Computed example of a mutant assay.
Amino acid sequence: MTRTLLRIDASARTEGSTTRQIADRVAERLAPETVVTRDLSQGLPMIDSDWIAANFTEAADRTEAQRAKLALSDELIAELQAADTILIAVPIYNFGVPSALKAWIDMIARARVTFRYTEAGPEGLLTGKRAILAVASGGTEVDSAIDFATPYLRHVLGFVGITDVQVVRSDRQMVDAEASFARAATDIEELAA
């Protein structure tokens, strides 16, 4: 059962976006009690040297300016921590993820907050969560040799501890739109609520 769904919309398109339409259908299928939506269409700030310096300063030693620099990152991480299901609506842009989604990943992948390094290697700290990727493309086949978005997202999510990742795909729309939408419908039907 999905109690809290965090929905990340990564498409730059706010109207006519396939990933947003698919995400609507996935959210309807899951019927969560609470939905928190993070729309990345206007972009996010890129991390910079001040952000990195703040991040690597112990929390108790951070200046007010450093705390302010990390405030958005803290907010994004809190959204992830509160959710039991994360729905990422992601179009494949030029074989990869949109830049705004990469910026979101840079903001939420924080050592000692969402992952930590151990003698056995990195350990994700966001365990017990489920992620659903609603992926759309014009010509790139999901999980093909030229899809650098879907495997990347699986890896990043696993790195922070989210290993239960399912994919709803509406790929290769410009090759065969009807088949593309049929694949998405089938994938949605196979999702457990």
Rank of each mutant, 00 (worst) to 15 (best):
Q66M: 14
V35R: 09
Y152W: 07
A177D: 03
I105W: 06
L101D: 03
D171E: 07
G139N: 04
D143E: 15
R20I: 03
P122H: 12
E141C: 04
A27N: 03
T63H: 10
I105Y: 07
P32S: 13
R29F: 02
M107N: 14
L87D: 03
V26A: 06
R13N: 08
A109D: 02
Q66V: 07
T127W: 10
A54R: 06
S41G: 05
R183Y: 04
N55Y: 07
R3I: 15
T127Q: 15
Q66W: 03
P91N: 01
V36N: 07
N94E: 03
V36L: 13
G43P: 05
Q173T: 05
A60H: 12
T140Q: 06
D9M: 00
P91M: 00
R183T: 09
Y152G: 01
L6R: 07
A131T: 08
S73D: 06
L191G: 10
G158W: 05
G121C: 14
E75A: 15
Q81R: 15
D9A: 08
G161D: 13
A185W: 08
D164I: 14
D164N: 15
G16Q: 06
R130G: 09
P151G: 04
V175C: 01
S170C: 15
A120F: 04
R62C: 10
G128P: 09
S11R: 00
P32L: 14
L133F: 04
L87A: 07
D187E: 12
V165C: 12
